[in-house]
């Protein structure tokens, strides 16, 4: 939030804004240095985004091994193509284009055998029992999570992707729009249909809310 005053010099950006701007400048520097061939600078970019990359790939492919392999492969391709990248743009959104292509190719080339959620996921909260049909807690929670994961694996890859980006990775609509190069309205619309498909698949598992 900026303070509105008549004197332009006293417009105070918040700590968050300052931090974001610094991070952007820092990222720009790292990109420029990477373009000069400095592998250490690129290493910083990799360290900054490796977790995001891994978890997003994990959500799309459903395999830990593939997520690790594909996210690293995408970084290698990004490094080789970094001279074509415009330094002012967000690096991760650009990198994500490469990663998503690799993940979708992986899904196309290989009939998926996604790991069950119990192997790659866990509970964040203990509130899920409230929406279950039966009151048995931990087991019920595991069951419903497994069911959600199976249902997600039956969704179209694009539907699963947008759910992962929003629900698991917590990206904002603007971030997702940048990563998928679509308008924000389309992000919301895709999210609606993905959530609807998921809800339809789980209709027998969830209580009637009314």
């Amino acid at each position: 939030m900026k303070t509105k005053t008549n004197d332009w010099t006293s417009v105070n950006p918040s700590d968050e804004e300052v931090s974001t701007t610094r991070q952007e400048l820092d990222e720009r520097m790292l990109v420029v240095r990477s373009q000069r061939g400095e592998k250490a600078a690129f290493g910083e970019l990799v360290r900054r985004y490796m977790q995001r990359a891994y978890f997003t790939a994990l959500g799309i492919t459903g395999s830990g091994e593939a997520a690790l392999d594909l996210s690293q492969d995408a970084f290698i391709r990004a490094y080789r193509a970094i001279k074509k990248f415009e330094p002012g743009r967000p690096f991760f959104a650009w990198y994500y284009q490469i990663l998503r292509n690799l993940c979708f190719n992986y899904l196309r080339d290989r009939k998926r055998h996604a790991a069950p959620f119990s192997e790659i996921g866990e509970s964040r909260l203990s509130q899920i029992s409230d929406v279950l049909q039966r009151p048995d807690e931990a087991l019920q929670r595991k069951e419903i999570q497994e069911a959600v994961w199976q249902a997600m694996n039956r969704l179209k890859p694009e539907e699963r992707e947008i759910l992962i980006l929003r629900e698991f990775e917590g990206y904002s609509y603007n971030d997702i729009a940048g990563m998928l190069t679509i308008p924000v309205g389309t992000v919301m619309s895709r999210l609606y249909y993905a959530r609807k498909s998921l809800r339809d698949q789980l209709s027998d598992r969830l209580k009637d809310p009314v």
Partner: peptide, 28 residues
Amino acid sequence: FKQLKEVTQGMKFKYPPQEVWDSYWMNV
């Protein structure tokens, strides 16, 4: 939709062992 959100909100991916991150850049 709210009910579904409550369910998905309670799920997250398992964090892999620290060694995965330690060796990540080296592998790249």
